[in-house]
Amino acid sequence: MAQDQNEQDDDLFLVDDESGSESEDKHLLFRLGDEEYGVPIDRVQSIEELQRIVAVPDMPHYVRGVINLRGTVIPVVDLRLRFGMPARDYDDRTCIIIIEADSRVVGFVVDTVSEVHQIPAKNIQPAPEFRSGSGSEQFVTGLGTVEGEVKILLEIDRLMRPEEVPEQALALGKAQMQSAVSAGTEA
């Protein structure tokens, strides 16, 4: 009873009272279209509001460009486009989730972020067998259930691989940004 209460409190307050290992269960939930998706919170660096994206030429269509996040230039991927969903105009609820993996940082544009929620491992089921190599299925790690609703949990690392987000984009963006920053510093 007390345990259940605690769990509920944890769910509501998003507080990790126990050991740090439980932070593995915490997921950032965000929305793309009608569905809600989740990524492990330890991969998330921060949530940023939409800001000016500087377009970078010769990139895959889902790579919208780069942003300057407090002096760091990071490439931005539109997840809708990446998952083959129809494009949608950005609005004030549109957010950029900054993910950090393998010393690389990439921003993902989503419709909106919902909350940080704990999804225990027992509530996560493995993803069904999909045909390999087709669309977004390869990025799905499992289906988590939160309050009776199914959340699609993503293998976010795969979306950050160099073949997904070319290095030159990052380099070019970095160069552009740094020159801009230095110019600003000099000024």
Binding site: D16, S23, K26, I41, D42, S46, E48, C95, V113
Partner: peptide, 23 residues
């Protein structure tokens, strides 16, 4: 909300020291 989520993220990463901040 975003601020709160970010706070939650940072708190989670802070581990033991971030507990109060998590609240």
């Amino acid at each position: 909300n975003i601020l709160a989520i970010n706070a939650a993220i940072y708190a989670a990463k802070a581990g033991e020291f971030g507990k109060g901040f998590t609240v």
